[in-house]
Computed example of a mutant assay.
Amino acid sequence: MSTATAPPVAARPAAAHARRGRRRSGLARRRAVIAWAFMLPLIGVNALVVLGPSLFAVYYSFTDWNGIGGAQWVGLANYAELFGDADFRNALWHNVLWTIFFLVVPMVMGLFGAYALTRIRRFRLVFRVAYFLPYIVASVVTAAIWENLLSPDVGVGRILQVNFLGSQTLALPTVAFVNNWAWWGFLVVVFLAAMQGVSPNLYEAAALDGAGPFRQFWSITLPSIQPTFMFLGLMTIIWSFLSFDYVYILTQGGPAGATDVLSTLLYREAFASLRAGYASAVGIVMALISGLVVAAYLVIRKRKDWAV
């Protein structure tokens, strides 16, 4: 008569541990499959509406295409024409000026507006809503209102005898002013959220050391919100190079190209001149500029070890 030999006592915990490990591994795989199942529709939509058109834009930038019929391959001819085109250089220069303006004026206004709101206790929510409201109003509505306000026939232009949107000197600053009116309130709200995350103990310690409001702002607030500041600077640069709505609604790039930016040049070449291949080359250059800005930001972020 034979008897079964029981497994060693030490082997039982090891076997149980192995089973638990297999169960955890199987559970992790199931969670990964479920996660990908939820993500696949979104990936498919992005591939359809973002990746696909982007690849086609790259292809058409090397062709002579009117946007309707077949495309004829021309290689780098569009890019060679682009960098020799006075209209392109003019639009690019306006984008640079636009970017400089929006990196300085609304950023400074947003910073000090947000800091001022941190110093008050009553009606803060009312001010936040008042600042943010122009940002959520449709750009068509905002542009139409300011077009009438600045009109040389019925608005401020009539009083001052100045055609703000018809002057080659004043048109671009005027459009930038209108866009800034709608934009800077958004910066106020974002900066205010970042400033509210700064520890009050830092300000109390600085006040005990005799630091005034400006010194506290310079030595505590700005370093504390630096990641947010740099991120908004990045987005401002990208959005500045993609600006279109206010320029097109108010001036369509005129007068005589005085407010032309890359996006209005692209729109005109694609839909007015029916040069979709050339317009695609303009779009690729815009994308490359944005990509370089993002790459520079990521390098700085990695070196600074920012969480934002």
Rank of each mutant, 00 (worst) to 15 (best):
Y203F: 10
A32N: 07
F229C: 03
Q216D: 04
A176D: 13
D153A: 14
Q252T: 04
Q72C: 04
A86S: 03
V294R: 09
T251I: 11
I300E: 03
I34C: 10
Y135P: 02
R121E: 15
Y203V: 01
L242H: 13
L208D: 02
L149F: 13
A28M: 05
I34D: 05
E269Y: 00
L265K: 09
V126M: 15
P200R: 12
A35I: 00
I120S: 10
V189G: 06
A279K: 02
V189S: 14
V9Y: 11
L298H: 08
V294N: 11
M235I: 05
R31T: 01
F101A: 05
I238D: 03
W36T: 07
A6G: 01
W65Q: 05
R215I: 00
A116E: 12
L51W: 09
V308T: 08
I159R: 10
L265D: 00
V33Y: 05
A211K: 04
F231S: 05
S290H: 06
A80M: 11
F88E: 10
S263K: 06
F123E: 08
A143N: 11
P13K: 14
P173C: 12
A4M: 10
Y131R: 02
A279M: 09
I68C: 13
G70H: 09
M109K: 05
I238S: 06
R89N: 04
V162F: 15
R30V: 00
A80E: 03
V154N: 01
K304G: 01
G155W: 13
Q226D: 04
R268H: 11
N179F: 14
L192G: 01
L265C: 01
V74F: 15
I136T: 09
D64E: 12
T221W: 06
D153G: 09
V104G: 03
L265E: 02
M109F: 12
R89C: 01
L133P: 03
A272R: 12
G197K: 09
A91P: 06
R31I: 00
E147K: 15
L202C: 08
A207V: 03
A206P: 08
G110A: 09
F271C: 04
V140R: 04
P152I: 05
P53S: 10
L125F: 12
R119G: 01
W306G: 06
N180P: 01
T3F: 10
V141F: 15
S2P: 13
M195C: 06
Q72D: 11
L165Q: 12
P223Y: 15
P41G: 06
Y131L: 10
F38E: 06
A57S: 13
S151T: 07
A15H: 03
Y248A: 13
L292T: 08
A11W: 02
L42V: 13
R30T: 03
R29E: 06
Q196R: 05
M195L: 14
A295Y: 14
S167L: 14
R19V: 10
S224I: 09
S139P: 02
A114D: 00
A144P: 11
S240L: 01
A32W: 12
I289P: 11
V190Q: 07
W65P: 05
Q72H: 13
W93S: 08
Y60C: 09
R122L: 12
N201M: 08
A307P: 00
L250R: 09
L208I: 04
I43T: 01
A143W: 15
P41M: 04
A211F: 07
F229M: 06
V9E: 11
A15N: 02
A296Y: 05
F186T: 00
